[in-house]
């Protein structure tokens, strides 16, 4: 069996980056012209748009597309980094509690009637919740001193946060329930330029994760091996977790929980381009951007003028797809 795939097929880094880059450009252009109002691509290129079209483009579609791409890239890169750090291809940023912590605080904010503070208050509390939960998981994990300890702490704290969300939903009014649910499923429906400025804050952290590529490669060998290659493992762990916590909680605070991207995208890249983080991280960023852009494109056009929360779409497609991947590639992934 192993003899048969003596030389496994792999796409080279340059090819993968060029292909994904071009695809991202193409999908971006498609997203710009499609929607309830279709824009003629030739007029877009020639700059001959009507005032209404220009307004739609600049105030609605452009910020939404930028948000799609950066959130997708950030979540996918966080997934890749967390999987490497925990040496587990099935790990996910949610494992360190970011998503559920952010969701819990956002739900709490909505139910406690913090509505007067508006979007900023909602985002702010989600952000605080995400970071707090991560610190809690880290603290419990440090006491146990092992990766599995931290993962178990993550699972337990996730469960507590989820039951908290359940409790809030139980206490909420119908209208509140709807906004909690919509938010927990992820939606780019309220994208605007302010949100774009906020998401731009995550870009340096995505680059910082890329900067750790070699260290992440080394840590997949094992903690002892990484240390003997000159890496201060606790420091690396702290950095990677904080960066991903920041990226994910900012994303969650703006657009809600974007599921499956952090899990599936790095997985796909590993299968096609290999495990080295120098390739994995930039390719995941591009593919994450493409996937979220596509998914959000569908969710805003298929049921137009109504919108399907993008998280539902991602889970409907991502779930079965992931099962298929696991069934087909168990041996290759060494799970």
């Amino acid at each position: 069996m192993t003899q048969m795939r003596a030389k496994q097929f792999r796409v080279s880094r340059t090819w993968a980056l060029s292909f994904l880059g071009l695809t991202l450009v193409f999908v971006t252009l498609m997203s710009l012209i499609t929607g309830p109002i279709t824009i003629n691509p030739w007029q877009l290129i020639g700059g001959e748009l009507t005032e209404l079209e220009a307004l739609i483009l600049i105030d609605i579609r452009v910020p939404r597309i930028i948000l799609n791409i950066i959130v997708g890239a950030g979540v996918a890169v966080s997934g890749a980094a967390i999987q490497g750090l925990f040496r587990n291809p099935l790990a996910d940023p949610a494992l360190i509690g970011v998503s559920s912590g952010a969701a819990l605080f956002a739900a709490g904010f909505l139910i406690m009637g913090g509505g007067v503070l508006g979007q900023l208050g909602l985002s702010g509390s989600a952000f605080v919740g995400g970071l707090l939960t991560t610190f809690l998981v880290l603290a419990v994990g440090r006491k146990s001193g092992s990766i599995s300890g931290m993962l178990l702490a993550g699972i337990a704290i996730n469960a507590i946060a989820l039951s908290g969300i359940g409790l809030f939903s139980y206490l909420s009014s119908d209208a509140q329930l709807r906004s909690v649910a919509f938010w927990a499923l992820g939606s780019f429906g309220s994208a605007d330029w302010e949100m774009v400025y906020v998401i731009l804050l995550t870009l340096p952290f995505i680059l910082l994760l890329y900067d750790q590529s070699h260290k992440l490669n080394a840590i997949t060998l094992g903690d002892q091996e990484a240390a003997s290659l000159g890496i201060f493992v606790p420091g690396l762990r702290r950095q990677v977790i904080l960066y991903t916590a920041f990226i994910v909680s900012v994303s969650v605070s703006l657009v809600g929980v974007i599921s499956f991207v952090g899990l599936v995208v790095p997985h796909l890249i590993r299968l096609s381009c290999g495990s080295s983080h120098t390739t994995l991280i930039p390719c995941s960023a591009l593919l994450g951007g493409i996937l979220v852009l596509l998914a959000d494109g569908f969710s805003r056009t298929v049921f137009a003028p109504a919108e399907l929360p993008v998280g539902i779409l991602l889970a409907i497609i991502g779930g079965p797809f992931f099962i298929l991947l696991i069934l087909r590639s168990q041996e290759k992934m060494g799970i």
Binding site: Q8, G84, R87, P89, N217, T220, L221, G222, Q224, E225, R270, G274, S275, S276, K332, M333, G334, I335
Partner: peptide
Amino acid sequence: PQKSGLEFPF
């Protein structure tokens, strides 16, 4: 070390 646990397809 005695046992190495690399489980990613490098």
